[in-house]
Simulated assay, not measured.
Amino acid sequence: MKLTCPECTQHFSVPDNAIGPKGRKLRCSKCGHQWHQTLEMLAQQKAPKPEPAALPAAAESAPADSGEEEVVPFGRFGSGEADPDAEPDPAGTDEEEDQEGVFGAPPIPRGRMPLSRPPKTRSKRLIAIAASVILVVTLGILFGARGSLVAAWPPIDRLYATIGLGVPVIGEDLVIQNVAAWRKTDGSIELLIIKGEIRNPTEQMQTVPTLAGKLTGTQGDIMQEWLFRAENQVMLPGEKTDFEYELPQPGADAAEVTVTFSERALGGGLGY
């Protein structure tokens, strides 16, 4: 069958089954005009036209102009050129969906389809690498500076202990026990004598850290602090060692003595 563009009157040859009972939307490949083609419109186009008036004799000798332009087939039919003389496919007469894509200018699409874009794999890979680097650096800081972090904020030690990275406490495997303190006068000098024991309850040999003494007054204020050493610096499993320190001029308000382990090194001239 032949179709004519209502806008530019361009003619096209299409298979007879190209226009279904409901018609279809077309686009002219020449001028781009869009219209809804129906079988009724084809019937109107095929209606006989009134014969033109007789021309003078001189005009009759001239080549007759049929009024029809050259029939231009659609640019594509399937994967090849249009074949106006081909037999129509009876199987697709009533299936309008099978006719899309047969024209040089395809029918108007029913919906706008988004253009597919290649996945941004490179950007995702860079983001993943950057996140991994940040995670490793953060974990390194948290692990390497855990001692400083716990000292600044002691409650965070619970978090480290939960994940098995608790901050080791100096002398945590040793026990300070039997601490006693009393005043003593040596001539005109009053002394505070502090004695006690350190026990190694583990099955490994332990190094005894520096000891730190603290004297607190009746109001809870710290009166004096000092460092000293135990009698033995290395202890075998289950072994005990003694410590003793003489503090001069403790003061009348001295009320309590505390002995703990210290990470600080003992300076010269201090200790026992």
Rank of each mutant, 00 (worst) to 15 (best):
residue 144 G to S: 10
residue 252 A to I: 02
residue 254 A to E: 01
residue 183 R to D: 00
residue 270 L to P: 04
residue 54 A to M: 08
residue 22 K to R: 12
residue 9 T to L: 15
residue 16 D to T: 11
residue 224 Q to S: 05
residue 12 F to L: 14
residue 151 A to I: 01
residue 94 D to E: 14
residue 139 L to F: 10
residue 91 A to F: 09
residue 12 F to H: 11
residue 136 V to I: 13
residue 142 L to R: 02
residue 184 K to R: 08
residue 265 A to N: 13
residue 238 G to P: 05
residue 93 T to S: 08
residue 226 W to S: 01
residue 118 P to H: 02
residue 214 K to Y: 04
residue 55 L to E: 08
residue 222 I to V: 15
residue 69 E to R: 01
residue 9 T to D: 14
residue 67 G to W: 03
residue 94 D to S: 13
residue 236 L to H: 10
residue 46 K to W: 10
residue 159 L to A: 12
residue 247 L to R: 07
residue 216 T to C: 01
residue 104 G to M: 02
residue 203 E to D: 15
residue 264 R to H: 12
residue 61 S to Q: 13
residue 259 V to W: 09
residue 158 R to A: 15
residue 96 E to W: 14
residue 74 F to K: 02
residue 44 Q to G: 11
residue 22 K to H: 13
residue 224 Q to P: 01
residue 18 A to G: 05
residue 114 P to F: 00
residue 168 P to A: 09
residue 257 V to D: 02
residue 31 C to R: 12
residue 7 E to T: 05
residue 37 Q to H: 04
residue 96 E to I: 11
residue 63 P to K: 10
residue 108 I to Q: 13
residue 16 D to W: 09
residue 34 Q to T: 15
residue 256 E to C: 03
residue 122 R to S: 10
residue 260 T to E: 11
residue 176 I to E: 10
residue 118 P to K: 08
residue 113 M to C: 08
residue 187 G to H: 10
residue 120 K to E: 12
residue 99 Q to A: 12
residue 52 P to M: 02
residue 56 P to M: 00
residue 243 F to A: 02
residue 120 K to A: 09
residue 199 R to H: 14
residue 4 T to P: 00
residue 86 A to I: 02
residue 43 A to P: 00
residue 198 I to R: 00
residue 166 G to H: 01
residue 112 R to Q: 14
residue 163 I to V: 15
residue 251 G to S: 05
residue 236 L to T: 07
residue 271 G to P: 10
residue 73 P to E: 13
residue 120 K to V: 04
residue 121 T to P: 01
residue 8 C to G: 12
residue 9 T to Y: 14
residue 85 D to C: 05
residue 236 L to I: 02
residue 15 P to L: 08
residue 111 G to F: 11
residue 121 T to L: 14
residue 83 D to V: 07
residue 202 T to Y: 02
residue 172 E to G: 07
residue 193 I to S: 09
residue 1 M to H: 05
residue 110 R to Y: 09
residue 65 D to M: 02
residue 171 G to K: 04
residue 192 L to R: 03
residue 239 E to A: 14
residue 241 T to W: 02
residue 146 R to V: 00
residue 108 I to K: 07
residue 219 Q to T: 10
residue 222 I to H: 05
residue 93 T to G: 03
residue 229 R to C: 07
residue 138 T to D: 04
residue 13 S to V: 11
residue 114 P to G: 06
residue 212 A to I: 04
residue 151 A to L: 06
residue 221 D to N: 12
residue 92 G to F: 12
residue 149 L to W: 04
residue 204 Q to D: 13
residue 114 P to R: 11
residue 223 M to A: 13
residue 264 R to S: 07
residue 254 A to D: 03
residue 49 K to N: 07
residue 167 V to T: 10
residue 266 L to A: 08
